[in-house]
Design a protein around this nucleic acid. Sequence first.
RNA 1: GCCCCCAUCGUCUAGCCUGGCCUAGGACACGGGCCUUUCAAGCCCGCGACACGGGUUCAAAUCCCGUUGGGGGCACCA
Length: 510
Amino acid sequence: MASTTPSTSPTSTPARVRFAPSPTGFLHLGGARTALYDVLLARQTGGQFILRIEDTDRKRYIPGAEEELMRSLRWLGLEWDEGPDKGGPYGPYRQSERKEIYQKYAQQLVDSGHAYYCFCTPQRLAQMRKEQQARGEPPHYDGTCRHIPPEEAQRRVEAGEPHVIRFKMPKEGTITVHDLLRGDITVENRTLDDYILVKSDGWALYHLAAMVDDHLMGITHVIRGSEWLPTFPLHAHIYRAFGWEEPIWVHLSVFLKPSGKGKMSKRDAEVFRKGHKSIFIKDLEELGYLPEAVNNWIALMGWSYDDHTEFFTMQDLIEKFSLERLKPSPAAVNFSKLDHFNGLHIRALPEEELARRLVPYFHAAGYPDVTVDDLRPIVPLIQTRITTLDEAPKIAGFFFREDVEPVPEELIAKKLDAAQSLEVARRAREVLAAVPADAFTPENTEPPMRALVDALGLKAGQVFGVVRVAVTGQRVSPPLFETLAIVGKAKTIERMDEAIKMLEALAKKA
RNA sequence: GCCCCCAUCGUCUAGCCUGGCCUAGGACACGGGCCUUUCAAGCCCGCGACACGGGUUCAAAUCCCGUUGGGGGCACCA
């Protein structure tokens, strides 16, 4: 059985790996992780990462999905070396453009006796399955066309009779396949089916198309989801029927929902989307996650480096990734860990870079004129205060609004009443008014304000809180004096005056 | 129903292959504290797991068997 563990380290020679999505939807967490591992292996070994589009099923094709898939991959920084949009020496990279290739290899399998024509109609097949179910048997092809003499089958094909091509699965014996994470897996051939390789419309199915492409494209490591484990033996049979050398097979575990109970359903995906979470990469961008954080996060779902290192840049991952440390057990998605990594990566970003990345989020939040220059001084004040980029406009939007609208009651300081707070506001305004407008810095505003706190016999928080709410309109804000410096003296005084009016009204009412 | 895979804190995991360094380590989350003008960030402390049952062995989280639980698959989808 040709199922040996590679004698050399799988990562020692240049790897050719491929990510082969079908254009039926958006790139999700599972696909992204597979693509990430592909890229890491390719970059680490000096090999190639290939993007191949598996679009042989015209019924499921979704227009625009291919472009979306590529956009998401690029956002994650997972650029391919060969693919449908950039070509390469093993193209075409879209299966819909490779129909003749699959037909040729299917024919080869028929000729060598490893496959046969089947003329059973879908109706007969459905009926057959129904009866098998009723008898409590596992659904499988009953082999009706398996014994049609080749000459007769050939005649019927030439006569134009609708047909498919099936793999002629051995009825006896076992096959042992080797998965890098799980080791040898042995199954009895009789539990396998005569799977269809080519549909009646002439298009190859995944089982044939992917094997042919992987071989022709020189793929050294097939990294794919564990949903392929059940048909893995078929794929090995096909490789062996052709006499091809098998790639290293790596089946990644599936992602479970956060509870760990069951895998993600479409319904779950919708619920997440409502709660500032998503399993789709394109949403993650919109929600303010950094590609660095997403990569770091998914890299660690099923892979680890050691017993304590968790923060990885792409460069770190390329250096440290290894197939050997992949884990075969399923992993539940943990969104709060994504938040954690996002915070870490936001803080790791140079300020200039953060400012640059924040711009589109301010635009989207209704501040269309905000520029990198505007954001540059603000970034140091909010860098440790946001976990996602979309939070920045929420916490710092007041810098760009003409007017802030504090909730009047929030102007009342802790343990004080409206009248007392009014007095605090008036005195604070006075103190701040005394600082020159061209030197409205923390060095000049904070000491006199501290002195005021002492003079009033209050806590710093009580006095600063009144000013904070007055100037930012928020109870929670970046540090006060740095904030005042950016807002500027004119606006500060203006907003203090507004607050004083509100407090006067409140005090009168009381 | 049948086939296959998986099994350490709530979650992600280290340790398992090459039994003893494990009174099981790290991280997220959670609880508490420090710092502090709010909120964060940072730092400290705490909570919390080897699914169960048999075996093998002087010794088992680690090896073997079974059970249970979870997951995947059983299409002219991928």
